[in-house]
């Protein structure tokens, strides 16, 4: 699709046709996104009030601890969770103060 064509169709239509073009990967990624959203919700819910360690979170949501750690690392990088001290050899994580709902 050339640039000219793009400018002629609306942005929504363009995205739609692109989505069709990349249907397989978009579908896969949407599934991934759902999982990530769910993971984020359940993790954040658990550590909203009390900070917890990764194994504690993992035990509560029933996911492997390495996966939980990956999300915690990601959330920490983007400011969603913060480290608030340590419990034994494990750092504690808590939901960062939310700026928006």
């Amino acid at each position: 699709m050339s640039d000219e064509q793009v400018s002629n169709v609306s942005r929504g239509e363009m995205l739609k046709s692109l989505r069709e073009m990349h249907a397989a990967s978009v579908e896969q990624t949407q599934a991934l996104l759902r999982e990530q959203k769910q993971m984020q919700q359940s993790i954040c819910q658990i550590i909203r009030e009390t900070p917890k360690t990764v194994p504690e979170i993992a035990a509560e949501i029933g996911k492997p601890s390495h996966e939980v750690l990956w999300y915690i690392a990601a959330f920490k990088k983007y400011g969603i969770v913060v480290e608030t001290g340590k419990c034994g050899d494990y750092p504690l994580y808590q939901r960062a103060k939310e700026t928006q709902a």
Binding site: V54, P55, A58, S65, L69, A73, K76, K86, Y90, P91
Partner: peptide, 16 residues
């Protein structure tokens, strides 16, 4: 780095 410190990737323990 990803954790900002040395943790083990299995469960986030600070290795001793």
């Amino acid at each position: 780095g990803p954790y900002g410190r040395v943790l083990r990737p299995g469960d986030g323990k600070e290795p001793t």
